[in-house]
């Protein structure tokens, strides 16, 4: 699991890659929460994520909660169909805004 963070104006863009499961979720959380605290408008680039376990989904939800608590928003870009399907079946999908591309994702945040 790797996370690279950059800024696009007021928006934090975090590119996440690899597997997020019970072993890597705590590290991902430790990296992402400070980002959200700095800049609660977040785009997570998810196209490099191969697998999101239950613990990974919960980490994502925590990021979402931190962002909304700061009146921010979390947009997921490039989520694989399989992960989207899992998130839909388990009730996680409804909390997030989805976008196909980074541009679209940024537009969602600016439009909010």
């Amino acid at each position: 699991m790797e996370i690279e963070v950059r800024s696009e104006g007021p928006v934090a863009v975090a590119a996440v890659s690899g597997d997020i499961d019970g072993k890597t979720a705590p590290a991902a959380q430790a990296q992402l929460l400070p980002v959200v605290e700095q800049s609660p408008q977040v785009v997570l680039e998810m196209s490099g994520v191969r697998f999101l376990s239950s613990a990974g989904l919960r980490m994502m939800l925590l990021v979402y909660r931190h962002a909304t608590a700061r009146e921010g928003k979390v947009v997921l870009v490039g989520l694989s169909e399989e992960i989207q399907d899992t998130m839909d079946m388990t009730g996680f999908l409804g909390f997030f805004t989805l976008a196909d591309t980074l541009e679209e994702g940024l537009a969602h945040i600016e439009g909010a």
Partner: peptide, 18 residues
């Protein structure tokens, strides 16, 4: 549960009930 192999049957059933 379709997500039973991920151990997420509780989430899937609750999502259905909701």
């Amino acid at each position: 549960a379709a997500t039973g192999k991920m151990g997420m049957q509780v989430d899937e059933l609750k999502t259905l009930v909701k």
